[in-house]
Design a protein around this nucleic acid. Structure first.
Length: 487
DNA sequence: ATGTGC
Protein backbone atom coordinates (compact mmCIF):
# COMPACT_ATOMS: atom_id res chain seq x y z
CA UNK A 1 0.00 0.00 0.00
CA UNK A 2 1.15 3.55 -0.67
CA UNK A 3 0.57 6.63 1.49
CA UNK A 4 -1.87 6.06 4.33
CA UNK A 5 -5.12 7.60 3.20
CA UNK A 6 -7.98 7.75 5.67
CA UNK A 7 -11.36 7.22 4.01
CA UNK A 8 -14.14 9.46 5.30
CA UNK A 9 -16.96 7.61 7.04
CA UNK A 10 -20.51 8.91 6.91
CA UNK A 11 -22.95 7.51 9.45
CA UNK A 12 -26.21 6.39 7.84
CA UNK A 13 -27.86 4.61 10.76
CA UNK A 14 -26.65 3.69 14.26
CA UNK A 15 -24.99 0.54 12.92
CA UNK A 16 -24.11 1.46 9.33
CA UNK A 17 -21.39 3.77 8.02
CA UNK A 18 -20.57 4.51 4.40
CA UNK A 19 -17.35 5.31 2.57
CA UNK A 20 -18.40 7.34 -0.47
CA UNK A 21 -16.78 6.23 -3.75
CA UNK A 22 -13.67 8.23 -4.61
CA UNK A 23 -10.88 7.64 -7.12
CA UNK A 24 -11.15 4.21 -8.70
CA UNK A 25 -13.79 2.87 -6.30
CA UNK A 26 -16.64 1.36 -8.35
CA UNK A 27 -19.04 1.07 -5.39
CA UNK A 28 -19.21 2.53 -1.87
CA UNK A 29 -17.68 0.91 1.18
CA UNK A 30 -20.13 0.00 3.92
CA UNK A 31 -19.01 -0.66 7.50
CA UNK A 32 -21.43 -2.21 9.98
CA UNK A 33 -20.44 -1.17 13.49
CA UNK A 34 -21.82 0.43 16.60
CA UNK A 35 -20.58 3.90 17.56
CA UNK A 36 -18.73 2.25 20.45
CA UNK A 37 -16.87 -0.19 18.21
CA UNK A 38 -16.07 2.21 15.42
CA UNK A 39 -13.08 4.18 16.81
CA UNK A 40 -11.16 0.90 17.07
CA UNK A 41 -12.77 -0.64 14.03
CA UNK A 42 -9.40 -1.88 12.85
CA UNK A 43 -7.61 1.39 12.28
CA UNK A 44 -7.12 3.27 9.05
CA UNK A 45 -5.57 0.32 7.25
CA UNK A 46 -8.66 -1.88 7.50
CA UNK A 47 -10.91 0.94 6.29
CA UNK A 48 -8.49 1.67 3.44
CA UNK A 49 -8.67 -2.01 2.55
CA UNK A 50 -12.48 -1.77 2.43
CA UNK A 51 -12.04 1.11 -0.05
CA UNK A 52 -9.39 -0.76 -2.07
CA UNK A 53 -11.66 -3.81 -2.46
CA UNK A 54 -14.31 -1.47 -3.90
CA UNK A 55 -12.06 -0.97 -6.96
CA UNK A 56 -12.14 -4.64 -8.03
CA UNK A 57 -13.56 -5.38 -11.50
CA UNK A 58 -17.18 -6.50 -11.42
CA UNK A 59 -17.82 -5.70 -7.76
CA UNK A 60 -21.51 -5.02 -7.12
CA UNK A 61 -23.50 -3.17 -4.47
CA UNK A 62 -20.73 -2.34 -1.98
CA UNK A 63 -17.51 -3.46 -0.35
CA UNK A 64 -18.78 -4.56 3.07
CA UNK A 65 -17.10 -4.72 6.46
CA UNK A 66 -18.57 -6.62 9.40
CA UNK A 67 -18.41 -5.28 13.00
CA UNK A 68 -15.31 -7.40 13.75
CA UNK A 69 -13.33 -6.02 10.79
CA UNK A 70 -9.57 -5.73 11.10
CA UNK A 71 -6.52 -5.53 8.89
CA UNK A 72 -5.75 -8.58 6.72
CA UNK A 73 -3.87 -9.73 3.62
CA UNK A 74 -5.25 -7.50 0.84
CA UNK A 75 -8.89 -7.75 1.91
CA UNK A 76 -9.79 -6.91 5.50
CA UNK A 77 -10.71 -9.76 7.81
CA UNK A 78 -14.44 -9.28 8.32
CA UNK A 79 -14.90 -8.33 4.66
CA UNK A 80 -17.60 -9.34 2.17
CA UNK A 81 -17.37 -8.58 -1.56
CA UNK A 82 -19.50 -9.94 -4.40
CA UNK A 83 -18.57 -9.75 -8.10
CA UNK A 84 -20.86 -10.24 -11.11
CA UNK A 85 -19.51 -13.22 -13.06
CA UNK A 86 -21.19 -12.23 -16.34
CA UNK A 87 -19.73 -8.71 -16.11
CA UNK A 88 -16.09 -9.77 -15.84
CA UNK A 89 -16.25 -10.05 -12.06
CA UNK A 90 -13.06 -11.32 -10.44
CA UNK A 91 -12.12 -13.88 -7.83
CA UNK A 92 -9.25 -13.06 -5.48
CA UNK A 93 -7.49 -15.49 -3.10
CA UNK A 94 -6.94 -12.54 -0.76
CA UNK A 95 -10.73 -12.32 -0.44
CA UNK A 96 -10.82 -15.80 1.04
CA UNK A 97 -7.66 -15.74 3.12
CA UNK A 98 -4.75 -18.07 3.68
CA UNK A 99 -6.72 -20.42 5.90
CA UNK A 100 -9.21 -21.51 3.26
CA UNK A 101 -12.52 -22.63 4.80
CA UNK A 102 -11.43 -21.91 8.33
CA UNK A 103 -14.63 -22.37 10.26
CA UNK A 104 -16.54 -23.55 13.27
CA UNK A 105 -18.35 -26.73 14.22
CA UNK A 106 -20.66 -26.93 17.24
CA UNK A 107 -21.94 -30.07 18.95
CA UNK A 108 -24.65 -30.18 21.61
CA UNK A 109 -23.83 -32.74 24.29
CA UNK A 110 -26.59 -34.75 25.89
CA UNK A 111 -25.56 -33.60 29.38
CA UNK A 112 -26.08 -30.48 31.48
CA UNK A 113 -23.42 -28.43 33.27
CA UNK A 114 -24.16 -29.73 36.77
CA UNK A 115 -23.90 -33.37 35.75
CA UNK A 116 -20.81 -32.69 33.69
CA UNK A 117 -18.88 -30.79 36.40
CA UNK A 118 -17.49 -33.85 38.27
CA UNK A 119 -16.10 -35.26 35.00
CA UNK A 120 -14.74 -32.00 33.63
CA UNK A 121 -11.03 -32.42 34.38
CA UNK A 122 -10.99 -35.99 33.13
CA UNK A 123 -12.82 -35.03 29.92
CA UNK A 124 -10.42 -32.14 29.29
CA UNK A 125 -7.48 -34.51 29.81
CA UNK A 126 -9.07 -36.91 27.34
CA UNK A 127 -9.73 -34.15 24.79
CA UNK A 128 -6.18 -32.90 25.23
CA UNK A 129 -4.84 -36.34 24.31
CA UNK A 130 -7.28 -36.84 21.40
CA UNK A 131 -6.68 -33.43 19.78
CA UNK A 132 -3.42 -33.02 17.82
CA UNK A 133 -2.47 -29.35 17.82
CA UNK A 134 0.25 -26.75 17.52
CA UNK A 135 2.51 -26.11 14.57
CA UNK A 136 3.51 -28.84 12.16
CA UNK A 137 2.58 -32.52 12.05
CA UNK A 138 0.46 -34.86 14.13
CA UNK A 139 -3.06 -35.79 13.08
CA UNK A 140 -6.01 -38.03 13.92
CA UNK A 141 -5.92 -39.72 10.53
CA UNK A 142 -2.61 -40.62 8.89
CA UNK A 143 -3.55 -40.96 5.21
CA UNK A 144 -2.17 -43.83 3.16
CA UNK A 145 -1.03 -41.53 0.35
CA UNK A 146 -2.03 -39.07 -2.35
CA UNK A 147 -4.78 -41.41 -3.59
CA UNK A 148 -6.60 -41.34 -0.27
CA UNK A 149 -6.02 -37.61 0.14
CA UNK A 150 -7.71 -37.12 -3.26
CA UNK A 151 -10.84 -38.79 -1.86
CA UNK A 152 -10.84 -36.40 1.10
CA UNK A 153 -10.40 -33.42 -1.23
CA UNK A 154 -13.21 -34.61 -3.51
CA UNK A 155 -15.73 -35.64 -0.85
CA UNK A 156 -14.77 -33.91 2.40
CA UNK A 157 -16.73 -34.92 5.49
CA UNK A 158 -18.79 -37.34 3.37
CA UNK A 159 -15.69 -39.48 2.81
CA UNK A 160 -14.79 -39.30 6.51
CA UNK A 161 -18.28 -40.50 7.47
CA UNK A 162 -18.24 -43.23 4.77
CA UNK A 163 -15.02 -44.47 6.34
CA UNK A 164 -16.73 -44.75 9.73
CA UNK A 165 -15.67 -41.41 11.24
CA UNK A 166 -19.12 -40.05 11.99
CA UNK A 167 -22.86 -40.40 11.49
CA UNK A 168 -25.41 -39.19 8.91
CA UNK A 169 -26.55 -36.30 11.13
CA UNK A 170 -23.00 -34.90 10.87
CA UNK A 171 -23.55 -34.47 7.13
CA UNK A 172 -27.18 -33.29 7.36
CA UNK A 173 -26.06 -30.38 9.56
CA UNK A 174 -22.84 -29.47 7.71
CA UNK A 175 -22.61 -26.58 5.24
CA UNK A 176 -22.92 -28.07 1.73
CA UNK A 177 -23.93 -31.33 3.43
CA UNK A 178 -20.29 -32.21 3.99
CA UNK A 179 -18.68 -31.38 0.65
CA UNK A 180 -18.76 -29.17 -2.43
CA UNK A 181 -18.77 -30.88 -5.80
CA UNK A 182 -16.36 -28.82 -7.87
CA UNK A 183 -13.09 -29.86 -6.26
CA UNK A 184 -10.26 -31.00 -8.53
CA UNK A 185 -7.63 -32.78 -6.41
CA UNK A 186 -5.46 -33.53 -9.45
CA UNK A 187 -4.80 -29.82 -10.00
CA UNK A 188 -3.07 -29.21 -6.65
CA UNK A 189 0.65 -28.54 -6.47
CA UNK A 190 2.95 -31.27 -5.18
CA UNK A 191 3.73 -29.09 -2.17
CA UNK A 192 0.04 -28.64 -1.28
CA UNK A 193 -0.48 -32.42 -1.43
CA UNK A 194 2.61 -33.08 0.65
CA UNK A 195 1.49 -30.65 3.33
CA UNK A 196 -2.02 -32.12 3.38
CA UNK A 197 -0.98 -35.73 3.92
CA UNK A 198 -0.02 -35.49 7.58
CA UNK A 199 -2.41 -32.89 9.07
CA UNK A 200 -5.91 -34.30 8.62
CA UNK A 201 -7.55 -34.16 12.04
CA UNK A 202 -5.42 -31.45 13.66
CA UNK A 203 -6.27 -28.10 15.20
CA UNK A 204 -3.29 -25.97 14.20
CA UNK A 205 -2.36 -22.91 16.25
CA UNK A 206 -3.20 -19.22 16.67
CA UNK A 207 -6.85 -18.60 17.52
CA UNK A 208 -7.88 -22.18 16.75
CA UNK A 209 -9.38 -24.13 19.63
CA UNK A 210 -11.58 -26.89 20.85
CA UNK A 211 -13.75 -25.70 23.73
CA UNK A 212 -16.22 -27.27 26.10
CA UNK A 213 -18.90 -24.64 26.63
CA UNK A 214 -22.19 -24.25 28.49
CA UNK A 215 -25.30 -22.53 27.10
CA UNK A 216 -25.38 -19.45 29.31
CA UNK A 217 -28.48 -17.74 27.89
CA UNK A 218 -31.09 -18.51 25.25
CA UNK A 219 -32.23 -15.42 23.34
CA UNK A 220 -34.49 -17.11 20.78
CA UNK A 221 -36.34 -20.09 22.18
CA UNK A 222 -37.78 -21.37 18.90
CA UNK A 223 -34.49 -21.28 17.03
CA UNK A 224 -32.57 -22.76 19.97
CA UNK A 225 -35.02 -25.63 20.13
CA UNK A 226 -34.76 -26.24 16.39
CA UNK A 227 -30.97 -26.23 16.65
CA UNK A 228 -31.06 -28.67 19.59
CA UNK A 229 -29.86 -26.23 22.27
CA UNK A 230 -31.18 -25.53 25.78
CA UNK A 231 -29.97 -23.41 28.71
CA UNK A 232 -27.39 -25.15 30.90
CA UNK A 233 -26.45 -27.63 28.20
CA UNK A 234 -22.85 -28.63 27.58
CA UNK A 235 -21.52 -28.05 24.03
CA UNK A 236 -18.29 -28.67 22.15
CA UNK A 237 -17.06 -26.00 19.74
CA UNK A 238 -14.22 -26.64 17.27
CA UNK A 239 -12.56 -23.75 15.42
CA UNK A 240 -9.96 -24.71 12.80
CA UNK A 241 -9.30 -24.76 9.08
CA UNK A 242 -7.40 -26.40 6.24
CA UNK A 243 -3.90 -26.20 7.81
CA UNK A 244 -0.84 -26.17 5.55
CA UNK A 245 -2.78 -27.46 2.53
CA UNK A 246 -5.04 -24.40 2.32
CA UNK A 247 -2.12 -22.10 3.00
CA UNK A 248 -0.14 -23.62 0.14
CA UNK A 249 -3.09 -23.38 -2.27
CA UNK A 250 -3.49 -19.69 -1.45
CA UNK A 251 0.23 -19.08 -1.94
CA UNK A 252 0.27 -20.97 -5.27
CA UNK A 253 -2.70 -19.10 -6.73
CA UNK A 254 -1.74 -15.62 -5.50
CA UNK A 255 1.54 -16.16 -7.34
CA UNK A 256 -0.20 -17.39 -10.50
CA UNK A 257 -2.68 -14.50 -10.50
CA UNK A 258 0.03 -11.87 -9.98
CA UNK A 259 1.46 -13.13 -13.29
CA UNK A 260 -1.86 -13.58 -15.10
CA UNK A 261 -3.58 -10.37 -14.01
CA UNK A 262 -1.97 -8.04 -16.57
CA UNK A 263 -3.11 -10.30 -19.43
CA UNK A 264 -6.70 -9.50 -18.44
CA UNK A 265 -5.99 -5.78 -18.29
CA UNK A 266 -6.53 -5.71 -14.52
CA UNK A 267 -4.62 -3.41 -12.21
CA UNK A 268 -5.24 -3.22 -8.45
CA UNK A 269 -4.25 -0.63 -5.83
CA UNK A 270 -2.50 -3.27 -3.69
CA UNK A 271 -0.56 -6.31 -4.96
CA UNK A 272 -2.24 -8.39 -2.29
CA UNK A 273 -5.52 -7.94 -4.15
CA UNK A 274 -4.26 -10.14 -7.02
CA UNK A 275 -7.31 -11.39 -8.92
CA UNK A 276 -8.54 -12.69 -12.30
CA UNK A 277 -12.02 -13.04 -13.81
CA UNK A 278 -14.06 -15.87 -12.29
CA UNK A 279 -14.85 -16.89 -15.87
CA UNK A 280 -11.23 -17.57 -16.88
CA UNK A 281 -8.83 -20.51 -16.73
CA UNK A 282 -6.85 -19.25 -13.72
CA UNK A 283 -10.09 -18.16 -12.02
CA UNK A 284 -11.69 -21.56 -12.41
CA UNK A 285 -8.42 -23.25 -11.36
CA UNK A 286 -8.38 -21.28 -8.11
CA UNK A 287 -12.02 -22.02 -7.32
CA UNK A 288 -11.48 -25.76 -7.90
CA UNK A 289 -8.40 -25.77 -5.66
CA UNK A 290 -10.25 -23.67 -3.07
CA UNK A 291 -13.10 -26.21 -3.14
CA UNK A 292 -10.57 -28.99 -2.44
CA UNK A 293 -9.33 -27.10 0.61
CA UNK A 294 -12.92 -26.48 1.73
CA UNK A 295 -13.56 -30.21 1.66
CA UNK A 296 -10.31 -30.86 3.53
CA UNK A 297 -11.33 -28.40 6.26
CA UNK A 298 -14.76 -30.04 6.69
CA UNK A 299 -13.13 -33.46 6.94
CA UNK A 300 -10.63 -32.00 9.40
CA UNK A 301 -13.37 -30.73 11.71
CA UNK A 302 -15.31 -33.98 11.24
CA UNK A 303 -12.35 -36.06 12.46
CA UNK A 304 -11.62 -33.82 15.44
CA UNK A 305 -15.31 -33.89 16.34
CA UNK A 306 -15.43 -37.66 16.08
CA UNK A 307 -12.41 -37.93 18.39
CA UNK A 308 -14.13 -35.62 20.91
CA UNK A 309 -17.30 -37.70 20.60
CA UNK A 310 -15.34 -40.80 21.59
CA UNK A 311 -13.96 -39.04 24.68
CA UNK A 312 -17.43 -37.86 25.77
CA UNK A 313 -19.00 -41.27 25.26
CA UNK A 314 -16.25 -43.04 27.18
CA UNK A 315 -16.06 -40.62 30.13
CA UNK A 316 -19.62 -39.25 30.45
CA UNK A 317 -21.83 -41.54 28.40
CA UNK A 318 -23.20 -38.42 26.65
CA UNK A 319 -23.64 -38.27 22.89
CA UNK A 320 -22.68 -35.28 20.73
CA UNK A 321 -25.23 -34.05 18.17
CA UNK A 322 -23.98 -31.71 15.46
CA UNK A 323 -25.68 -28.30 15.60
CA UNK A 324 -23.91 -27.01 12.48
CA UNK A 325 -20.56 -26.66 10.71
CA UNK A 326 -19.93 -23.42 8.83
CA UNK A 327 -16.92 -21.77 7.23
CA UNK A 328 -16.01 -18.09 7.58
CA UNK A 329 -13.24 -18.00 4.92
CA UNK A 330 -14.69 -18.94 1.54
CA UNK A 331 -15.81 -17.66 -1.85
CA UNK A 332 -19.03 -19.09 -3.29
CA UNK A 333 -20.92 -18.73 -6.53
CA UNK A 334 -24.42 -17.70 -5.44
CA UNK A 335 -27.50 -16.09 -6.97
CA UNK A 336 -28.61 -12.78 -5.47
CA UNK A 337 -30.83 -9.90 -6.52
CA UNK A 338 -28.89 -6.65 -6.59
CA UNK A 339 -30.58 -3.29 -6.97
CA UNK A 340 -29.15 -1.09 -9.75
CA UNK A 341 -25.77 -1.76 -11.33
CA UNK A 342 -25.14 -3.25 -14.75
CA UNK A 343 -28.00 -5.78 -14.68
CA UNK A 344 -31.69 -4.99 -14.66
CA UNK A 345 -32.64 -3.66 -11.24
CA UNK A 346 -33.48 -6.50 -8.89
CA UNK A 347 -32.89 -9.29 -11.41
CA UNK A 348 -31.14 -12.40 -10.07
CA UNK A 349 -27.42 -12.38 -10.89
CA UNK A 350 -24.71 -15.01 -10.52
CA UNK A 351 -22.18 -13.58 -8.12
CA UNK A 352 -18.90 -14.73 -6.66
CA UNK A 353 -19.37 -13.87 -2.98
CA UNK A 354 -16.08 -13.56 -1.07
CA UNK A 355 -16.45 -13.96 2.69
CA UNK A 356 -13.21 -13.49 4.58
CA UNK A 357 -13.65 -13.54 8.32
CA UNK A 358 -17.35 -13.35 7.59
CA UNK A 359 -20.01 -16.03 8.02
CA UNK A 360 -22.75 -17.01 5.61
CA UNK A 361 -26.15 -16.50 7.29
CA UNK A 362 -28.96 -17.89 5.12
CA UNK A 363 -32.48 -16.56 5.82
CA UNK A 364 -35.44 -18.74 6.86
CA UNK A 365 -36.80 -20.97 4.12
CA UNK A 366 -33.63 -21.00 2.03
CA UNK A 367 -33.28 -24.21 -0.06
CA UNK A 368 -29.68 -24.78 1.14
CA UNK A 369 -30.73 -25.07 4.79
CA UNK A 370 -30.69 -28.49 6.50
CA UNK A 371 -33.93 -30.33 5.69
CA UNK A 372 -35.26 -30.21 9.27
CA UNK A 373 -34.84 -26.41 9.43
CA UNK A 374 -36.01 -25.52 5.92
CA UNK A 375 -39.73 -25.19 6.59
CA UNK A 376 -39.60 -23.30 9.89
CA UNK A 377 -40.95 -19.75 9.43
CA UNK A 378 -38.57 -17.80 11.70
CA UNK A 379 -35.47 -19.99 11.81
CA UNK A 380 -32.56 -19.39 9.45
CA UNK A 381 -29.15 -20.98 9.13
CA UNK A 382 -27.23 -21.56 12.37
CA UNK A 383 -24.35 -19.06 12.49
CA UNK A 384 -21.45 -19.97 14.77
CA UNK A 385 -19.43 -17.11 16.23
CA UNK A 386 -16.37 -18.16 18.24
CA UNK A 387 -15.22 -15.75 20.92
CA UNK A 388 -11.59 -15.41 21.86
CA UNK A 389 -10.12 -17.79 24.44
CA UNK A 390 -11.85 -17.50 27.79
CA UNK A 391 -14.73 -15.36 26.51
CA UNK A 392 -18.25 -16.07 25.31
CA UNK A 393 -19.19 -17.51 21.93
CA UNK A 394 -22.53 -17.11 20.15
CA UNK A 395 -25.01 -18.98 18.02
CA UNK A 396 -26.93 -16.63 15.72
CA UNK A 397 -29.53 -17.25 13.05
CA UNK A 398 -29.82 -15.88 9.54
CA UNK A 399 -32.58 -13.29 9.00
CA UNK A 400 -34.60 -12.25 5.92
CA UNK A 401 -33.36 -9.29 3.93
CA UNK A 402 -29.80 -9.27 5.21
CA UNK A 403 -27.95 -6.29 3.69
CA UNK A 404 -24.63 -8.03 2.82
CA UNK A 405 -25.40 -11.06 0.64
CA UNK A 406 -26.59 -13.10 3.63
CA UNK A 407 -23.42 -12.61 5.65
CA UNK A 408 -22.48 -11.58 9.17
CA UNK A 409 -19.48 -11.35 11.49
CA UNK A 410 -17.19 -14.27 12.37
CA UNK A 411 -15.75 -13.57 15.82
CA UNK A 412 -14.31 -10.96 18.08
CA UNK A 413 -11.57 -9.58 15.84
CA UNK A 414 -8.07 -8.70 17.03
CA UNK A 415 -7.12 -5.32 18.48
CA UNK A 416 -3.60 -6.18 19.76
CA UNK A 417 -0.96 -7.88 17.61
CA UNK A 418 0.36 -11.28 18.68
CA UNK A 419 3.60 -9.59 19.64
CA UNK A 420 1.86 -6.94 21.77
CA UNK A 421 -0.20 -9.60 23.51
CA UNK A 422 2.79 -11.83 24.24
CA UNK A 423 4.54 -8.82 25.80
CA UNK A 424 1.52 -7.99 27.96
CA UNK A 425 1.09 -11.31 29.77
CA UNK A 426 2.88 -14.60 30.47
CA UNK A 427 1.15 -17.79 29.39
CA UNK A 428 1.49 -19.29 32.89
CA UNK A 429 -0.25 -16.27 34.49
CA UNK A 430 -3.03 -16.35 31.92
CA UNK A 431 -3.69 -20.03 32.50
CA UNK A 432 -3.91 -19.39 36.23
CA UNK A 433 -6.35 -16.53 35.68
CA UNK A 434 -8.58 -18.61 33.42
CA UNK A 435 -8.49 -21.59 35.80
CA UNK A 436 -9.50 -19.25 38.65
CA UNK A 437 -12.56 -18.33 36.58
CA UNK A 438 -13.47 -22.00 36.29
CA UNK A 439 -12.05 -22.53 32.79
CA UNK A 440 -9.85 -25.62 32.51
CA UNK A 441 -6.94 -24.95 30.13
CA UNK A 442 -4.98 -27.44 28.06
CA UNK A 443 -2.53 -25.44 25.93
CA UNK A 444 0.00 -26.26 23.24
CA UNK A 445 2.62 -23.62 24.12
CA UNK A 446 2.90 -20.87 26.76
CA UNK A 447 3.62 -18.23 24.16
CA UNK A 448 0.68 -19.34 22.02
CA UNK A 449 -1.55 -19.03 25.08
CA UNK A 450 -0.32 -15.50 25.87
CA UNK A 451 -0.87 -14.38 22.27
CA UNK A 452 -4.55 -15.28 22.59
CA UNK A 453 -5.24 -13.29 25.78
CA UNK A 454 -8.85 -12.07 25.87
CA UNK A 455 -7.71 -8.42 26.03
CA UNK A 456 -6.15 -8.80 22.56
CA UNK A 457 -9.65 -9.01 21.08
CA UNK A 458 -12.74 -6.85 20.74
CA UNK A 459 -15.70 -7.43 23.04
CA UNK A 460 -17.66 -10.25 21.44
CA UNK A 461 -20.91 -9.10 23.09
CA UNK A 462 -20.54 -5.68 21.45
CA UNK A 463 -19.73 -7.26 18.07
CA UNK A 464 -22.84 -9.44 18.19
CA UNK A 465 -24.98 -6.49 19.33
CA UNK A 466 -23.76 -4.52 16.32
CA UNK A 467 -24.42 -7.44 13.97
CA UNK A 468 -27.97 -7.64 15.32
CA UNK A 469 -28.45 -3.90 15.19
CA UNK A 470 -27.30 -3.80 11.58
CA UNK A 471 -29.84 -6.48 10.65
CA UNK A 472 -27.16 -9.01 9.66
CA UNK A 473 -28.33 -11.80 11.99
CA UNK A 474 -30.20 -12.44 15.24
CA UNK A 475 -28.81 -13.94 18.47
CA UNK A 476 -30.05 -17.38 19.46
CA UNK A 477 -27.79 -18.42 22.33
CA UNK A 478 -24.73 -17.24 24.26
CA UNK A 479 -22.21 -19.90 25.27
CA UNK A 480 -19.49 -19.60 27.93
CA UNK A 481 -16.35 -21.77 28.10
CA UNK A 482 -15.65 -24.21 30.93
CA UNK A 483 -12.65 -25.86 29.29
CA UNK A 484 -10.38 -25.01 26.40
CA UNK A 485 -7.97 -27.13 24.37
CA UNK A 486 -5.80 -24.55 22.67
CA UNK A 487 -3.98 -24.84 19.37
C1' DA B 1 -3.70 -18.44 9.44
C1' DT B 2 1.42 -20.65 8.10
C1' DG B 3 7.42 -25.85 7.81
C1' DT B 4 6.03 -17.59 11.89
C1' DG B 5 11.11 -14.79 5.40
C1' DC B 6 12.45 -15.34 -0.39
Amino acid sequence: MTQARVPALVQETPYRYQIEPTGRMRVPGVVFASPGLLPEVGGDQALQQVADVATLPGIVDASYAMPDVHWGYGFPIGGVAATDIAEGGVVSPGGVGFDISCGVRLYAADVDAADFAPRKEAVLDGLSRSTPRGMGKGAVWELSGAGQLAKVLASGARYAVEQGHGVQRDLDRCEDFGAVDDADPAALSERAVKRGLHQLGSLGSGNHFLEVQVVDAVRDQAAAEAYGLRAGQVCVMIHCGSRGLGHQICTDHVRAMEQAMAGFGITVPDRQLACVPVDSDPGRAYLRAMASAANYARANRQLLGQAARGVFERLTGAGLDLVYDISHNLAKVETHRVAGGAGAAGAPRRLCVHRKGATRALPPGHPDLPADLRDLPDVGQPVLIPGSMGTASYVLTGVPGGPAFASTCHGAGRTLSRHQAAKAVRGQELRQLLESRGIAVRGASWRGLAEEMPEAYKDIDAVVEAAEGAGLARAVARLVPVGVVKG
